[in-house]
Amino acid sequence: MPSPIPVTRLLPKDFGLEFGACSSPLTKTASGSTLRVPTNKFHGKVAHRLWSSVIHWRELQALEPIGSGGFGTVFRGTYFGETVAVKKVKCVKNKLASRQSFWAELNAAHLHHQNIVRVLAATTCTPAHLNTKDNIGTIVMEFAGNINLQKLIYGLTDLLPVEKCIKYSIDIARALQHLHAHGVVHLDLKPANVLLSEQGVCKIADFGCSFKISSTSDTVTHMNEIGGTFTHRAPELLKGEEVSPRVDVYSFGITLWQLLTREPPYEGDRQYILYAVVGYNLRPLTSRNVFTQFFIGQNCQKLISRCWDGDPSIRPTADKFVDELSVLL
């Protein structure tokens, strides 16, 4: 699993800061078991391109729960007067997994892209009056909306035009393009982890399963513990093989299929599905009308089939399917 992002890697060489300490479960500095973090407030241009390792708690107000998951709860609130989302990562039975999930959330914190939910601040330090025994850390993020694609696909009765599906898929593809260019693999791409803003822009969220691939490492990366959602998990992950950006491409193929069909990808026993995906190349059906009666659907069917191919080398890169999807609009 990924290590926390060193603050010094995010700062210009000539940028001076005072540093304070914030406990980290996964790193040690030369002076002890603490992660060194900036204690001062950023100003000017730097404030727009860096996430902060300090949360100004007095500015964080009006927290209202809007969702929860295996590792924490998400709130909507205000931070310096702006609407934000706040994720509190809790400690579950597997304490190491909880801590890894918190630090994995920060794998893309240094990236700014219109289709990726931006991290504003994160810390493991919580004031005594706000702290709870099961709290691992807190992350303040931009508020990207109340609706995710899961709700849009299965919860709304309104028609979802093919053109709009393509537009949403291009947003997701551009986010993957940016992540992969910076060595970040999401590992849990699915409709529930794609938020839809009020402006109709899709943004990838929830990086708790993500992985940072080191460009300097000569070793092949394997996942000892597989996170993510089994319906969207690439066969090579199920077989314990190499982790690469192509696992996100597989998940993208399943997600695009869901957008176009508005149906669940599989039904039946979980273990049977996992076995059939690996052993018999089980995939969702592409014989639906949307793939056969329309030119756009026919092209999407071909792209989807390549995205979820059992051979990762056959799958297109994010760069490739951004181009392929863009010409369909």
Rank of each mutant, 00 (worst) to 15 (best):
V184S: 03
E242F: 03
T286K: 14
S98Y: 01
K28E: 14
E267R: 14
I5S: 07
P161C: 11
D319E: 13
S210W: 11
G268K: 12
P25Y: 02
L187H: 09
D171N: 06
I273M: 13
I172P: 00
G155H: 07
T132E: 11
T138D: 01
V119I: 03
A30Q: 01
P4R: 14
F291E: 06
S251C: 12
P6I: 13
I147Q: 12
G227Y: 05
H222P: 00
P235Y: 10
K190L: 03
A205M: 06
T132G: 09
E225V: 10
S53R: 15
F19Q: 09
G253E: 00
I273L: 13
Q293R: 13
S23Y: 15
K93L: 06
V185C: 14
F80Q: 04
Q298T: 01
V84H: 13
Y79W: 14
N131K: 15
D248S: 09
I147T: 13
H110N: 08
I172K: 03
G279W: 02
V194Y: 12
K88E: 00
E225G: 00
P284L: 13
K190R: 11
I314S: 03
V117P: 00
Q114N: 11
S305K: 05
S210A: 15
D319W: 05
F80Y: 14
F295C: 00
K167P: 01
E105D: 04
L159R: 14
D323I: 06
Q199I: 09
G81H: 10
T34K: 14
V89P: 07
Q100Y: 07
L260T: 06
P6W: 14
Q114G: 08
R270I: 08
W51P: 04
M141P: 00
F42E: 09
K93G: 01
V249L: 01
G208W: 08
R283F: 02
T255Q: 02
T123P: 09
H48W: 14
V119L: 02
E236P: 11
C165D: 04
T27D: 01
W103C: 04
T124W: 02
L187Q: 13
C22S: 15
H110Q: 10
V74A: 06
A173H: 05
V278P: 01
G208C: 09
P312L: 15
L285K: 15
E241P: 00
P264G: 12
Q177A: 07
G279N: 11
H129A: 11
D206E: 10
N131S: 15
G32L: 13
A318R: 07
T216K: 11
G72L: 08
A234D: 04
L259F: 12
V184R: 03
V92I: 12
G69S: 10
N107H: 07
R174E: 12
K212N: 04
P316W: 09
P264A: 15
A144Y: 02
N289D: 08
R49N: 00
T34E: 13
N299R: 15
T27I: 05
L111G: 05
N148F: 05
T317S: 15
F19G: 05
F207A: 03
Q100W: 06
